[in-house]
Amino acid sequence: MADGIHCAISGEALSVEAALRFVAGPGNGAVTSFVGQVRDLNQGRAVRGVSYDVYDALALRGFLQLTGEARARWGDGLSLWLEHFKGRLAVGGISIVIAVGSPQRDNRFQACRFLIEEIKHRAPIWKQEHYHDGDSAWVQGHALCRH
């Protein structure tokens, strides 16, 4: 993994503090972060938890590719942290942590937004919502198809 870049898929609780420490630096005036959490309502259904399924090897490769693309667009000086949870979370649980450090805030915001949007469309990750009525359903997503 390139210096200043951390990417991981984890079944352990994600740490926002670790992410902020990693991307902080004496030359960075601030850090920008995105922290995704399980919400209690989706499309009118009361949610009690979400299970995340991940194709680890391909997802990690994709994360590294995305962080490389972010540096190519917004500079090699970006420090980047990208972790996604795998397994089941209750409402409020943290599913993803993205943190970006750089001297310029515009680069930070744009890179952070780029990473979360691209992950939603390109990373091999799936959500199964568990509802209070006992039902469960896989969330409709974005097709990866190249055919």
């Binding site: 993803i96 992950i119 939603k120 990373a123 990750i125 799936w126 409709q140 997503g141």
Partner: peptide, 12 residues
């Protein structure tokens, strides 16, 4: 190696 079928994705 590692062939897989990937339904539409929704990470984050």
């Amino acid at each position: 190696q590692g062939l897989a079928v990937l339904p539409p994705v929704c990470g984050g």
